[in-house]
Design a protein around this nucleic acid. Sequence first.
DNA 1: TGATTCGTACAGTTTAAACTGTATAAAAAA
DNA 2: TTTTTTATACAGTTTAAACTGTACGAATCA
Lengths: 163, 163
Amino acid sequence: MLDNSNVKVKNGMLLEFAKTVELFDLTPIEARVFAYLYVEGTPLTLDELSEELGKSKTSISTSMRSLVELNLVKRVWKKGVRKDLYQANNHLYKQFLSFYTKKWKDATENRKESLLELKNEFDQIQNDIKDPQIQNKLDDLLDFHNRLDCFFKEASEIKKDGL
Amino acid sequence: MLDNSNVKVKNGMLLEFAKTVELFDLTPIEARVFAYLYVEGTPLTLDELSEELGKSKTSISTSMRSLVELNLVKRVWKKGVRKDLYQANNHLYKQFLSFYTKKWKDATENRKESLLELKNEFDQIQNDIKDPQIQNKLDDLLDFHNRLDCFFKEASEIKKDGL
DNA sequence: TGATTCGTACAGTTTAAACTGTATAAAAAA
DNA sequence: TTTTTTATACAGTTTAAACTGTACGAATCA
């Protein structure tokens, strides 16, 4: 009875937060693992998480690897503890937005490069057989990708304010 | 030979653009349909798309429905043509960013509401048994969601400039 | 009116992702 | 050293998503 309401609120947080985390293109289990680590606060082992979330240790291990790669979770050491301990990074906003904007910037930049290559190829076509429609579309697409790029550049600026 | 290079560039655009579209959480087939419609420019029927993309008409039909709901494609009529015709909206940047930011704003707002309900519930716990850790985390999460909200609000502002 | 053609609902199939259990290499303890 | 314990690679299984073909109601044409 004493802790009952506390636990209820905690579980609610866990559930809601995991949904938000999924928006950042994490798989459901990655999201749950991160949310659990974050709400719990203290560093936890793979076995503990496996137990608490009712998933196999292998599942936890693989999703943990992703989370570490994404810089959302870090491995921590504690004297006398043999197992690996993992802790959620607690700068939620900064971390999430930075890895998300990075992902987009990388993607759009790759795409821009490819489109520029296509433009080069197109420019080499003899003028009299160039399809002007294609010219237009190519330019539109390049413009679109440039704007996306700008958007996420501005986004990372905004991010820094709200540290 | 004459059109060969044109076609090659066109196919390249199609491929690259589809990848970008997928970033906006569209399924691969939705992305391809949209990209094809966009690159092609002229309105097309389900049958034509089915033929060109080598997918069943049903597949095209369902993905087209999503695209129309997302306001990325519109149905157009042409005198004398019995089949439905679909055309890609050509304000790429505006359309994509507006539906994307909307999606995020809706999601974070829902989440904020749920968290506020949890906060109410938490406030009703007797003070002496409140877990202060939970208090902190709840506040952090609310703060995080507020910032996300702000981010996408600012984002839609930026968007309007680059119309 | 009946005949034809369109778009999509639905059921079934294929394909891919998520997940698990076992086995193994690496590290720690004895 | 050997024994024990950890994290993960891998193969196999389960689960979910993507996709297709058939069938049917709605609309169009004759």
